[in-house]
Amino acid sequence: MDCREVVKIENLNFSWDNNRLALENVSLGIHNCEVVCIVGPNGGGKTTLLNLMLGLIKPSSGSIKVFGETPEKSRYRIGYMPQYLKLDLQFPLNVMDVVLMGRLHCGFWGRYSRNDRIIAERVLDEMSVADLARRPFAELSGGQRQRVLIARALACEPELLLLDEPTANIDPGFQEHFYDKLRELHKRMSIVMVSHDVGFVSSEIDTIVCVNRQVVVHKSTEITADTISGIYGYNVKIIDHTQDLSAIHKNRHQQFHHHEGCSHD
């Protein structure tokens, strides 16, 4: 896969109604050859950044381009997985109904075609939840719901996959599987995910985007405990000491020094 820029953000500012800047002077390029993870404290602007990429909200100033176009034009090429806690879990529908939503607008009169169903079954299989297809969405465990929602995002057959907290509530058994899946999916599409989970700094992630009103980009090979504490503004315990991380610890002296942009104010 040749390396091209998928998302390009230049001098972007965003504020909600109360005029406090939620994002300040953000410039960022995301390439399709890297798996990007957006991290930062709650309320730091991670989801805001994601919503800007989807075109659900518009920047107050500056520009954002996805596949060289406005996000509204490109959103068909994006597969999005929201946090499932935002959904009404009492709503009566089964797993297949949920996944087929990824095929919306393709069918005439809002009907799903035979092909739509084949694709839905394939992505369910890919996320290893094919056996749940007829189960009510409300009866699934948190981890199963998460996988179903990833499957729904994949059903869009996207070129860019946006995942909001994909590892929250996922069962530990699937976490390992999830990284493998991620590597496999990355052959086909660009991947951007959001996580507040520091332990998730995995070997599969190439680039870390730290968001706390401002944005700083790191290559994951340069991340240390200090970097992360800098972002969060307090000491954070890193639970997941993967081999890669301990290797990084040895090289900590070659680190970035400028994390002011990420620090708490």
Binding site: L54, L56, R75, Y76, I78, Y80, P82, K86, L87, D88, F91, L93, V98, M101, G102, L104, H105, R152, C156
Partner: peptide, 11 residues
């Protein structure tokens, strides 16, 4: 069920 997702699918 999920108006945000529906919006992204062009509805």
């Amino acid at each position: 069920f999920d108006d945000q997702f529906a919006e992204l699918r062009g509805i």
